[in-house]
Design a protein around this nucleic acid. Structure first.
Lengths: 172, 172
DNA sequence: CGCATTCACTTAACATGTTAAGTATCTCGC
DNA sequence: GCGAGATACTTAACATGTTAAGTGAATGCG
């Protein structure tokens, strides 16, 4: 199982541990990171075959559900930072998967929408993607999956008010 | 509060939706991503004050618990890919936070360990980090936190055997 | 021994994450 | 209607994620 940590023969016991902290491999951030990686590992090969990255796919999916959106709103929906989105949109536009036009009322805003080609690409990826999602659901259990997502949402809510570092939660 | 989405006056209803797919904002990968971001947002300011990134902190934490490790083993522990780790170790070594020496038995391997300075830095960060973790635990609930991590572990396990894309789960 | 293979890492190249600046546009008070 | 400030993006700069290729050192087999 490639599981040969703690070599029992060379005589260096757990040792060190000069700074008292939790075992970080069991910390919440690591658990979330590993779980997400385990999930995304299932999707990446399929996306890759279609020349899409995870983020590009997120953007197309967000766009497929609507007529057109401002970049800022899209950033919120696809959970990407402005600069990342800006670059990716440039590339997706060059590949003719999306279209952009500045809003008439406000020249600062540009409205983004998915193109016909973008829709075709989505249509070719969606079935596999759905199948993978279905398999994950089957393996983990639909009930548990719903529970997990419920808990993840609650976790987000719990931390919603804890913005920066200087927030001392005055009133509390 | 800058929260003026869904302009109710310009008459473009949900519209589009030419490709049938789940609402991706409720997909598992997005739930995991948002939850992790909500958690890490709490830690980043403190780490930043000490000139550490999330990944550098992971590496130091992994090193603090042991005498020395090979790079490959460290990559597995800190959940980083080789190339990322390689770069970060170069930087941490330049900052004298870690030390490296090639193993005597196998010239290919290099053993990494945390330095005295690294331990001092950790000691100055750990209290705040632990306090933040405690606050998160308090807000979300220790019981629920344990449950959540249990589920995340199970999710990982569920997907453990589903490696690449060409795996057709022959027998099944 | 000789040499192809494997191994442990490092480099390289490209995409994204992240913060800070920059640019153009809009809004508002005077 | 003009100039300060706010907005909506975009660029820039640096760190990491990710895959592929490169390098030097061990292994194994004929």
């Amino acid at each position: 199982m490639t599981k040969k940590s703690a070599d029992p023969a060379n005589g260096h016991p757990p040792a060190a541990r000069q700074v008292p902290m939790r075992d970080f491999s069991r910390s919440l951030p690591m658990s979330l990171l590993r779980a997400r990686e385990a999930v995304m590992r299932q999707f990446r090969p399929s996306l890759r075959e279609h020349g899409l990255t995870e983020q590009q796919w997120r953007i197309l999916r967000a766009l497929a559900a609507i007529e057109a959106v401002e970049v800022t709103e899209l950033a919120r929906t696809a959970f990407l930072l402005g600069p990342s989105l800006s670059r990716i949109l440039r590339d997706l536009e060059a590949r003719n998967l999306i279209e952009r036009k500045t809003a008439k009322a406000d020249q600062r805003r540009s409205m983004v929408s998915i193109s016909k080609e973008g829709l075709k690409l989505m249509a070719s990826v969606a079935p596999t993607s759905e199948a993978i999602y279905a398999e994950i659901t089957r393996r983990f259990g639909a009930r548990k999956l719903a529970e997990l997502q419920e808990m993840l949402g609650e976790l987000e809510q719990s931390l919603a008010g804890l913005g920066a570092a200087d927030e001392t939660i005055a009133g509390e």
